[in-house]
Design a binder for these strands. Sequence first.
DNA 1: TATCAATACTTGTCATGTCAAGTATTTTTC
DNA 2: GAAAAATACTTGACATGACAAGTATTGATA
Lengths: 160, 160
Amino acid sequence: MSHKLQHEIKKKRPFDSQQEEALLNLLRTNELFQNQFIRLFRKYGLTASQYNVLRILRGEGKPLPSLEIADRMIHVVPAITGLIDRLEKARFVKRRRCEEDRRVVYVEITDEAISVLKQIDRPVKQLREKLLGHLTRSELRELIRLLEKARTPLLADPEF
Amino acid sequence: MSHKLQHEIKKKRPFDSQQEEALLNLLRTNELFQNQFIRLFRKYGLTASQYNVLRILRGEGKPLPSLEIADRMIHVVPAITGLIDRLEKARFVKRRRCEEDRRVVYVEITDEAISVLKQIDRPVKQLREKLLGHLTRSELRELIRLLEKARTPLLADPEF
DNA sequence: TATCAATACTTGTCATGTCAAGTATTTTTC
DNA sequence: GAAAAATACTTGACATGACAAGTATTGATA
């Protein structure tokens, strides 16, 4: 079976341009990969977003304000409030009002969450290996370079 | 300003592996790009999913069963039902029961939708140029190749 | 120092995705 | 030819994103 995107999505005509083909390949690859991770996280009662929040909190090693979490995810602030709500209900994080600035809410990861993350670490690493293990080091390096280059104008230009 | 992902998301430590770095770059690039398209489509009263459905219907040139549309999108069937509901409410598509097999519902694009798509065609092309215009032809070719290669095991192995 | 702007969230509404169940309509099978 | 299985959706419950608007608190300014 061919893995060409044109066949994959039953596109009748060839792509209008290389740019369209690249964008659709990016979209499709991301979706397929994300689905794999979503299934993995689900086994542990987590969604991808929840996993990301917990990873950020664990990586930081100390409680973080909601805004800080929102900054590091792609997401808008309101989405974070809901995410934290559900994580708190599941006892994966706790909220704590900051005393110096009472507008700020600190989010703290619980030991329970740390323990779940620890269980997930190996499977995540294995999944990454499964998804990208067949690319050589230099191919990975080139892929990273091209993706970074692709983002450059978006990051440089605040207009965007 | 550096466009390195590590700085972008304020990651304290370097990546565990090249594979992780590649996956996060894929995720981030896709999100940034998708956001651009979402904003564009919104100007015309469409979401990205709705735009995709309409593109599929226009590309096909004739009505398609819901299942067929679901197949070509990544999505599960229930999501399509809701999508079609809203597109129908917005008068962008019509539903028609198949006479031979009354379980099947054909979805047909309206002239109104065709006209909106026509308006969007040029801005979409311009956005693609804006996002990827700074990559050379050979860089685009290489990016496409690497993304296709990345997906290969997922497509070949039904286990996945 | 009184007010106005900025900051950090929270809430509400809507679109989309997921899964589990349910309905209607063939198709298969015994 | 009737019951069972398959097919094509639809519906309902819930998580997640997006945007707009609201609240509480703090900072800046006149």
